[in-house]
């Protein structure tokens, strides 16, 4: 793999500009969201464990506290981003039909964005509600 073309692509790779022109962005985003999710998930499970069996009033009161809405929105944003990156990776590895692969990845990314939007708006509605 020598010659001017190989050199050109190697030179591009140096600047993190692969064929997809995104370099290691996917890899980095997956790791950084993973790192952020470690404390967020511990907080989330501890909070839900404390809320086991809680009624509507208790959950609303919890989401109107000073910390819960911030942590919850951070968890949802990082979580759905991480989920969509991971699921896209799984689809890329196992689905080899190009049309099916692209359709599934678009569905996963769209679905994750929609889920993030619905859940974050729900938290905000409770946190900022009357």
């Amino acid at each position: 793999m020598n010659g001017p073309t190989a050199f050109g692509s190697r030179f591009r790779r140096l600047g993190g500009l692969g064929s997809a022109r995104e370099g290691a962005a996917h890899w980095w985003a997956q790791r950084l969201t993973a790192l952020a999710l470690v404390p967020l998930v511990f907080w989330f499970v501890a909070s839900l464990a404390a809320l086991t069996g809680a009624g509507h009033g208790e959950v609303v009161a919890w989401l109107r506290g000073p910390i819960a809405p911030v942590m919850m929105i951070a968890l949802l944003a990082a979580g759905f981003h991480h989920l969509q990156l991971g699921l896209a990776e799984v689809i890329e590895d196992y689905v080899h039909n190009q049309a099916a692969k692209i359709t599934l990845i678009i569905a996963v990314k769209g679905g994750a964005a929609l889920c993030a939007l619905v859940s974050i708006l729900s938290v905000l509605r409770i946190a900022l509600g009357p």
Partner: peptide, 25 residues
């Protein structure tokens, strides 16, 4: 990881239900 994608749907349902009101919750 894939299973947690399904679990995330339950979390969305739970939060949306809490925002929708006591009956939904």
């Amino acid at each position: 990881g894939v299973a947690l994608g399904l679990g995330a749907l339950l979390l969305v349902y739970w939060l949306a239900a809490a925002a929708a009101g006591p009956q939904w919750f």
